[in-house]
């Protein structure tokens, strides 16, 4: 028994256990893989943001069973997705389709980004034009000569600093 308590054996046993677990995942029934693929994209209609595959609600369980039956019966994925879409509408898809009004929804962020970029470009062009203008006026016109009151104040300051 002391022989097996050696860390090496523990590690080996662990690796063997992991190996078998891994093999189980790889040998999964292709039907079940398709069931999961379909059910992960369908919203559990009575839960908050869970897919039919993840949810434990009765409706989701029965939906999963129905999907399994349909896959076993040889129905194709688009047909099964369509079956639920026809009955529950766009809401059933966790990722909305890009058709019809939804196309607007999908493109709106990019449209907004483009518009914002265009507005920024326009604004930057105006800022630069303004900067160039002030630079030009600054270099062309000589600084204004201070008037008598200003001059006497400057004089005062200078004298104070000398003291």
């Amino acid at each position: 028994m002391i022989f097996f308590s050696h860390p090496f054996w523990a590690l080996l046993l662990l690796m063997l256990a992991m190996g078998t677990a891994h093999a189980e995942v790889r040998n999964e029934d292709p039907t079940e893989a398709m069931v999961r693929q379909i059910a992960k994209d369908l919203r559990c209609a009575v839960c908050q943001n869970q897919s039919v595959y993840e949810s434990n609600s009765e409706l989701a369980k029965d939906m999963l069973k129905l999907i399994r039956d349909k896959v076993t019966a040889g129905e194709k994925e688009p047909a099964i997705r369509d079956y639920f879409h026809q009955r529950y509408g766009d809401y059933i898809y966790l990722e909305p389709t890009g058709q019809g009004m939804n196309a607007l929804l999908w493109s709106a962020p990019f449209l907004g980004l483009g518009l914002g970029g265009y507005a920024l470009w326009l604004a930057m062009r105006r800022w630069r034009a303004q900067a160039v203008m002030t630079e030009k006026t600054a270099s062309q016109t000589p600084p204004p000569t201070p008037d008598a009151a200003m001059q006497s104040r400057i004089q005062q300051e200078l004298e104070r600093m000398r003291m």
Binding site: V46, E58, L59, D62, M63, K65, L66, R87, G89
Partner: peptide
Amino acid sequence: PEQKIAIDWGVYG
């Protein structure tokens, strides 16, 4: 019992 009709009719609850 397995809510086959209900799902077929798009029932939520």
